[in-house]
Amino acid sequence: MNTAYLSIGTNMGDREANLARAVDLLRAADGVGSAVVSSIYETAPVGLTEQADFLNVAVRVETSLSAGELLEVCQRIEQELGRVRTVRWGPRTADLDILLYNEERMDTETLTIPHPRMHERAFVLIPLAELAPDVQEPGSGRPYREMPAAAEGGVRLWKAADTGWNGKE
Rank of each mutant, 00 (worst) to 15 (best):
A4R: 00
A4L: 12
A4C: 02
Y5R: 01
L6S: 01
G13A: 08
G13W: 00
G13Q: 02
G13Y: 00
D14I: 03
A17T: 05
A17N: 04
A17F: 01
L19V: 04
A20G: 13
R21E: 15
A22T: 00
A22S: 15
V23W: 09
V23H: 09
D24H: 12
L25I: 06
A28T: 07
D30G: 14
V32A: 14
V32K: 03
V32N: 03
G33Y: 01
S34G: 04
S34R: 12
S34Y: 12
V36E: 07
V37E: 04
V37I: 11
S38N: 09
S38R: 10
S38T: 03
S39D: 03
I40S: 08
A44L: 07
A44P: 01
P45N: 02
V46D: 07
V46R: 00
L48T: 09
T49D: 13
T49I: 06
E50D: 15
E50A: 15
Q51Y: 04
A52G: 13
D53H: 14
F54M: 07
N56T: 03
N56P: 13
N56Y: 00
V57I: 15
V59K: 02
V59S: 06
V61D: 07
V61K: 07
V61P: 06
T63H: 05
T63M: 07
T63N: 08
S64Y: 01
S64Q: 12
L65E: 05
S66W: 03
E69T: 07
E69W: 01
E69R: 15
L71W: 05
E72Y: 04
E72N: 10
C74R: 08
Q75F: 02
E78H: 01
E80C: 05
R83W: 06
R83K: 12
T86W: 00
V87T: 12
V87C: 07
V87K: 11
V87P: 02
R88A: 13
R88T: 09
W89A: 09
G90P: 02
P91S: 06
R92V: 04
R92Y: 03
D95L: 07
D95N: 11
D95A: 09
D97P: 08
D97G: 14
I98R: 08
L99Q: 08
L100Q: 10
L100M: 12
L100T: 13
E104C: 08
E104A: 15
D107E: 14
E109R: 15
E109D: 15
L111H: 07
T112N: 11
I113A: 13
I113D: 10
I113M: 10
I113F: 10
P116F: 14
R117G: 04
M118E: 01
H119N: 01
H119M: 01
H119S: 13
A122P: 03
A122C: 05
V124L: 11
L125Q: 10
I126P: 01
A129M: 04
L131T: 14
L131A: 15
L131V: 09
A132N: 05
A132T: 02
P133Y: 09
P133G: 02
P133Q: 10
D134E: 14
S140A: 14
P143S: 13
Y144I: 08
R145H: 13
R145D: 06
R145L: 07
M147S: 11
A149E: 10
A149T: 03
A150I: 04
G153P: 05
V155L: 06
R156N: 06
R156L: 09
A160K: 14
A161P: 02
A161L: 06
N166S: 13
G167Y: 08
K168E: 14
E169V: 15
